Amino acid sequence: MQFHLNVPVTPLPATIQYQQELLLMGSCFAEEIGEKLQEHRFNTLINPHGILYNPLSITKALTSYMDGQVYTREDLFQHNDSWNSWDHHSRFSGLTPEAALDHIQGMQTAAVRAIDHADWLIITLGSAHAYVLKENNRLVGNCHKVPGGNFYKRLLTVDEIVTALDNMMHRLFFRNRKINILFTVSPVRYIRDGVVENNLSKAVLLQAVHHLVNKFNRLFYFPAYELVIDDLRDYRFYKEDMVHPNEQAIQYVWERVVKGCISEGSQELLHRIAELNRAARHRPFNPESPQHQQFLHTYAARVKQLMGEHPELPLDDLLAYFQ
């Protein structure tokens, strides 16, 4: 008997490879998968604006990279003793304008380079709900705990999401002739919007994404949302807040990403790196024992061998650990 629906993942016709550069944008689920990619030594830049949830804020950030935008003090506001940007996540806030701008502009410079050189842009859309400042109708990427009475909340339409992403992608494809775009919809359930409202939001995102994927040859869709919502489909795969997928669910999606999105040759290399990562997490009962010293010697030799075969991989930290 079969007790759950197995969601098929069709392998991408163009696959991700180690020699490629990746830029990830979007919700917190983008960061979860991005960290898995970084852990396995892919050349990855994750969320240069910080976590962004709605498609228009993500599009605005990507456009700022293509414009080479330089943020100034006029782009910041002060709230609760910190300086913040309406376009950025609170991780970019600082106690002084200079501290905030240094962090913002450092990542902005890295993102401008990534736009020109990336082989893959991976966009994870979180919510079709957007927040707009009442005083000037400005769309915000993050509310920074400013009281809710200062914002309008509205559900974006499929048409305005498609238009914004379409315009951004036309510019991007003209600027970077090799880039592919992989869309996902976050399986995080934003129930503070309401259960019905969350489902409506996800439906808008799915409709917009599939409209675009069917329009462009270099656009692809990975069913992260369906894998958690329809395949796992159980609260035991969520954290205690019943909103965010737990580590088991993230690992399940990651394994499907590897099989469906990463080239066979890169999968083989990924598994070798995963073995080294597992060895580095090993905690011995007696670190000074001859057995553990031999263990370290063996894995140091394996890291050196891999560094010789793939000098482009950042493995210095693993070598330092085992030595």
Rank of each mutant, 00 (worst) to 15 (best):
V140M: 06
H117I: 14
G126D: 03
C143A: 04
I123A: 08
I123V: 08
W120L: 05
I115R: 15
K134L: 05
A114N: 09
H144L: 07
T124N: 13
A118L: 07
D116H: 15
R138C: 09
D119Y: 04
A118R: 11
R113C: 13
T124H: 12
G141Q: 09
L121P: 06
L125R: 07
H129V: 00
D116Q: 15
L125F: 09
W120T: 03
R138F: 10
I122P: 05
Y131D: 04
L121I: 08
N137T: 13
L125V: 03
D119V: 02
S127W: 08
N136P: 01
G141W: 06
K134V: 09
N136C: 02
H117N: 15
N137D: 14
K134P: 04
S127F: 04
A114K: 12
G126L: 04
N142V: 00
H117R: 15
H129A: 00
E135Y: 06
I123C: 11
H144P: 06
C143R: 01
T124Q: 13
A114Y: 13
I123L: 10
Y131A: 02
A130Q: 03
I115L: 14
L133W: 06
G126P: 01
S127I: 04
V112N: 12
E135S: 10
C143E: 04
N136H: 02
N142A: 00
I123K: 12
N137F: 14
C143P: 04
T124P: 10
G126S: 01
L139M: 03
V140H: 00
H117G: 14
Y131W: 12
E135H: 05
H144C: 04
H144W: 02
H117D: 14
V132W: 07
